[in-house]
């Protein structure tokens, strides 16, 4: 077998970035919001790896904190979207019928709209905040997962192993969740990588616009909107934030590409 560079590089990069983000959940070298007049616009140094921003806050700590916030939100969004999408898509795909037709039409309609646009509408109604954002994006991510899973269930439900399970009198729900579900794993895994990236992208964009998280828990996107104001004085602030976001998305994107070429799943 040809060496799967996508999988290797993507896996390594994803792991690295996930660890980086996860570290921010528990530990930062400095208090990310501690202001220090003496350190304003400090250049990168051993004391402040990435330097300091206009208020003298340690940028490395802020990047860690922002990355952690972004990761948490993306994972939560993914969890809502994937779990609900799995249940809805699985049931629709296996049982079919009128309910399936209606639900899928609805999913198609929602998926036709750019998710940032819909999320903006929802956030306009609910107001900003981390949990509102997770809710809005999570719900909006359900259709794409539901469609993905449904397609896979539709394909699998007529395969021999499902037929024999049915003949043996296994209950339909058990077939759906115990027999078929594990076999949709490759497709789901590929879908999760795409979903994760979309979640990071949507969260970052929304927070950048000031309609996502609140200033009390800043994420990468929110900090970027802050950093943009100091692009001339501390370009590295925006630079490190951008780099973190891009590497996270790139790593997971490559990982997904690798999974697809390994399992033969189409995007």
């Amino acid at each position: 077998m040809r060496k799967n560079w996508y999988l290797r590089i993507g896996g390594a990069l994803s792991l690295l970035m996930l660890i980086f983000c996860a570290v921010g959940l528990f530990w930062t070298p400095h208090d990310p919001s501690a202001i220090s007049a003496a350190d304003r616009y400090a250049l990168p140094s051993p004391a402040h790896l990435f330097g300091c921003d206009a208020l003298g806050r340690d940028i490395f700590s802020r990047v860690l904190q922002g990355a952690a916030a972004t990761l948490t939100i993306a994972l939560a969004v993914l969890a809502i979207g994937a779990v609900c999408g799995l249940v809805i898509g699985g049931l629709c795909g296996y049982f079919g019928g009128a309910a399936d037709a209606i639900v899928m039409r609805l999913c198609d309609a929602i998926a036709a709209f750019p998710s940032v646009l819909l999320a903006l509408v929802v956030m306009a109604l609910t107001g900003a905040g981390r949990y509102h954002l997770i809710f809005a994006l999570g719900v909006l991510f359900i259709p794409s997962f539901a469609r993905l899973v449904r397609g896979e269930f539709l394909r699998q439900r007529d395969l021999d192993y499902v037929k024999s399970a049915r003949l043996m009198g296994v209950s339909p729900l058990r077939i759906v969740f115990v027999h078929i579900l594990p076999n949709t794993f490759p497709v789901l895994l590929s879908g999760l990588t795409i979903g994760f990236n979309n979640a990071v992208l949507a969260e970052a964009s929304m927070s950048f616009l000031g309609i996502g998280v609140t200033p009390q828990d800043p994420s990468l996107g929110y900090m970027l909107s802050e950093a943009q104001g100091y692009l001339l004085k501390t370009p590295w602030y925006a630079g490190f934030l951008a780099l973190t976001t891009i590497l996270l998305i790139l790593g997971v994107g490559l990982l997904g590409e690798g999974i697809r070429s390994e399992t033969g799943v189409e995007a």
Partner: peptide, 14 residues
């Protein structure tokens, strides 16, 4: 591959 991973607003800042 790299360009696809860059969110529009970061591209804008860049």
């Amino acid at each position: 591959q790299v360009t696809m991973s860059i969110p529009n607003f970061i591209m804008g800042i860049g």
